[in-house]
Design a protein around this nucleic acid. Sequence first.
DNA 1: CTTGACTCCGTACCAAGGTACGGCGTCTAT
DNA 2: ATAGACGCCGTACCTTGGTACGGAGTCAAG
Lengths: 134, 134
Amino acid sequence: MQMTIGKVAERAGVGVETVRFYERKGLIDRPRRQGSAFRHYPTEAVQRIRFIKRAQDLGFTLSEIAELLDLRLEPGCTCGDIKNRAEQKAQDIDRKVRDLRRMKRSLNELISACDGKGNVDGCPILNSLGVEDL
Amino acid sequence: MQMTIGKVAERAGVGVETVRFYERKGLIDRPRRQGSAFRHYPTEAVQRIRFIKRAQDLGFTLSEIAELLDLRLEPGCTCGDIKNRAEQKAQDIDRKVRDLRRMKRSLNELISACDGKGNVDGCPILNSLGVEDL
DNA sequence: CTTGACTCCGTACCAAGGTACGGCGTCTAT
DNA sequence: ATAGACGCCGTACCTTGGTACGGAGTCAAG
């Protein structure tokens, strides 16, 4: 059961341009064109796009997803290899969270130093950032 | 005590191109050019760039920083207006943290479902992402 | 007066992840 | 057979925060 690009896009919940974009990026096999100039996709193409979207939701970038996809086809690739990628990504996420929490602590300090009253001259937030010298 | 762009950049710890970039973005006043074609900056320009960098460290984008800088010059702008921006930003950060923590929970589920042994066919991580249909 | 360091400007380029467009070709239903 | 919907391709464009480049002008020291 072959589909044209529009059907694949629709079923996968993305735009046609996105499918072509993924093909250019090597995330999707370039489909056979039986006789015509039109792409004809097997149903697996829809699954593939959904895979990509789910992996994106987990924080993988498109090039990491391409690696994952290539990795699994390499001879000698083990389940542990895949697990390593996932653990790396979990660590990336932890780092981002730590950075954001650090930002937020600093921001909260400024916020609590400011009573929100009065005019902007002498605002503790602006002043802590060095605005008094501008 | 006037400086050329190179000195300002050096003292602020950024590149010359960055200073010009900030000027184009309206983050830095365009300096007077006494007679020559060269930019001549007052010392406050260095403080201004440091302000920008500190605000960036807190998670503000350059356009938000520009707003902050404009806002403080508007008549009737209060300290509370600035505080609101900071609180908004704190909420943005919270949202990002929640998203990341959600990602990480999902990722951890996959990781713990995978013993890391055996070959890649039947890897629980890839399978949960839908790879079995590819 | 020349050399070297600095600056000028506009423009192009980078990553990421797409989106949009224009001028075609093709496919399908009526 | 023809209209309308769809697909083709290459290319340009978007955002954010810069970085790089090239050919010119300028400035201070020697």
